[in-house]
Amino acid sequence: MKVLVPVKRVVDYNVKVRVKSDGTGVDIANVKMSMNPFDEIAIEEAVRLKEKGVVTEVIAVSCGVTQCQETLRTAMAIGADRAILVECADELQPLAVAKLLNALVKKEQPGLVILGKQAIDDDCNQTGQMLAALAGLPQATFASKVEIADGRARITREVDGGSETLSLSLPAVITTDLRLNEPRYVTLPNIMKAKKKPLEVVKPADLGVDVAPRIKTLKVSEPPKRGAGVKVPDVATLVAKLKNEAKVI
């Protein structure tokens, strides 16, 4: 069984982004970019399934600018066998990405697609669900445990208040939660090997997908600032302030 793993190149999670002063967006020029953390977990899970012998091939996919090739090389250093870049310089919104991925699902016929639950830049949490809808496949979002047996996937997912377990027929779409696994570190020999693995580049037009954005960003602004707080010397002062000044207890 093949597994398709979409990965996104995003601003590194340690970077505190700044809003541009003209309100057109956030300043990501000269900022460190990395693979979206949830996607690392997705690749790791696919590679673990391959190591267990459940999966035969892991294909990493990214949609976006030329530099996404670096993200795909990282995915191959973790253990993906080959990569596909859907190269596009324009803004890609989740619906467009889901359509591109759906075209690749039709072509590659994977038994499983594993995505991250959300990207840490747009915080959308949509692409996996949209792909499942377009491809007519069942979905299990926010997965914390994945077991494949007898042509079905048994997925434990994190929900408000606890967890629940679903059984899906394959092929299926899964999105990863943080607690699914801990991604391995990439080693230098594996980075070298990843450079030799095949990376195919296609255009949205080759896949017959219209990627025009449906949502227009009118402006991006700083969130309202909180007023400066005070340090209190001891517990008694804290209690007094909460009772008399803030009146919250």
């Binding site: 669900q129 926010f142 994190e158 408000d160």
Partner: peptide, 23 residues
């Protein structure tokens, strides 16, 4: 925008071929 809503809303949007606004 709960675990349940986030699970279903994008699926509905894609079936209707419309974008979705999160959160």
């Amino acid at each position: 925008a709960t675990a349940a809503g986030k699970n279903v809303a994008p699926r509905v949007a894609a079936l209707l071929d419309v974008a979705q606004i999160s959160d």
